[in-house]
């Protein structure tokens, strides 16, 4: 972090003024800039501590043979937790380590699958909800509040509520689906390997679509009304207006909503942990790391998984920001 604090780069405004040939109002603007950095410093320091120190510690653990009972006295073992070739002699040998662990790759696949599917569904449904909530109708305030509630409930509560509703014997979900005739016999939603992942996705969609809808709704409300008036006068079909006018205008809102959502989805832990415990089909990277860290007494291995998880997410985020050309810039950019 030192490089951010070190050296005080001039503000855009001061630069502009310089370019325009005006002399920067030296004393006052310098004083303001100094106080700006002074204001920023405590937050940067605190964040460096909270983000930096534990991360470094975890990376360190991943390079040792630490176990829960022996954290301080652990020895450095290099990259052995990630990658190790054991030579059996006679040209025979085998690779070990996280990068060769099928269970890890299964967890990576599960997480990516879950994230892509759930975020995609949530974005599309969120867009539909937002369009509906943006229209005038009776009881809009009430519906809007009802839609908001799932987001405001702790995941641990909603996971338990749904586990109860999806119970194969007493659950209301099976009962209702059988009443309508969609299924003929009860399904063990959270236990059956075929449906477990979908159970997780359903609950996540229920919980998070409102969040997406509200973010997109905020974007929709920023679209000036005369845009629609103009399109109406020109006789342009509403569907075309949506794709050619509305969608491009709310694109920034959608992109930001997606990145925040995706960051949470890729780290998913509590929903899966409560809803489908010990299920290989839904084991996410975070759950994999947690198991190794605390249950299997493979602390260093779990630390390696955490480190890789961080790298995977960082890579995906940077890639996304690059591709989506997300605008994080300051004022006026």
């Amino acid at each position: 972090m030192a490089n951010v604090q070190a050296g005080v780069p001039p503000t855009e405004k001061a630069l502009e003024a310089e370019r325009a040939g005006a002399r920067p109002r030296s004393d006052l603007s310098r004083q303001r800039l100094r106080s700006a950095w002074l204001f920023l410093a405590p937050m940067l320091l605190v964040l460096a501590l909270v983000a930096g120190w534990p991360l470094l510690k975890t990376i360190w653990f991943s390079l040792t043979n630490a176990s829960l009972s022996n954290l301080e006295g652990a020895d450095f073992v290099g990259l052995r937790n990630y990658w190790e070739y054991v030579d059996y002699g006679d040209g025979e040998g085998e690779y070990f380590g996280l990068l060769f662990d099928p269970q890890w790759w299964n967890a990576v696949w599960n997480t990516v699958y879950y994230s892509v599917i759930s975020v995609a569904i949530e974005t599309v449904l969120g867009l539909v909800f937002a369009l509906v909530l943006n229209a005038e109708f009776k009881g809009r305030a009430f519906v809007r509040a009802a839609v908001l509630i799932p987001w405001a409930i702790p995941t641990i509560v909603s996971a338990k509520m749904w586990a109860w509703m999806m119970n194969d014997q007493f659950g209301i979900l099976n009962d209702m689906l059988m009443a309508i005739g969609i299924i003929s016999s009860p399904i063990a939603w959270t236990a059956d390997p075929d449906t477990a992942m979908w159970a997780v996705i359903i609950v996540d969609v229920w919980k998070t679509t409102p969040f997406m809808a509200l973010l997109i709704l905020a974007g929709l409300q920023m679209v000036p009304g005369d845009v629609y008036e103009a399109a109406k006068i020109d006789g342009i079909h509403p569907v075309k207006v949506f794709f050619k006018v509305t969608l491009p205008l709310i694109r920034p809102a959608i992109l930001v909503a997606v990145i925040f959502r995706a960051l949470d989805a890729l780290r998913v832990f509590d929903l899966i942990y409560v809803l489908t415990p010990n299920n290989t089909q839904t084991k996410s990277m975070s759950v994999f790391a947690q198991e190794n860290l605390f249950q299997f007494d493979k602390f260093a291995y779990g630390s390696a998984a955490s480190t890789l998880l961080f790298l995977v997410i960082a890579f995906i985020t940077l890639f996304y920001i690059k591709v989506a050309r997300l605008d994080l810039g300051g004022r006026g950019s």
Binding site: V4, L47, F269, S306
Partner: peptide, 19 residues
């Protein structure tokens, strides 16, 4: 700075629990 702040959201909570 904004981007770097986002990076704290990339850390899995389980990974930093022990530190």
């Amino acid at each position: 700075v904004l981007l770097w702040m986002l990076s704290t959201k990339m850390l899995p909570a389980v990974g930093v629990l022990i530190p």
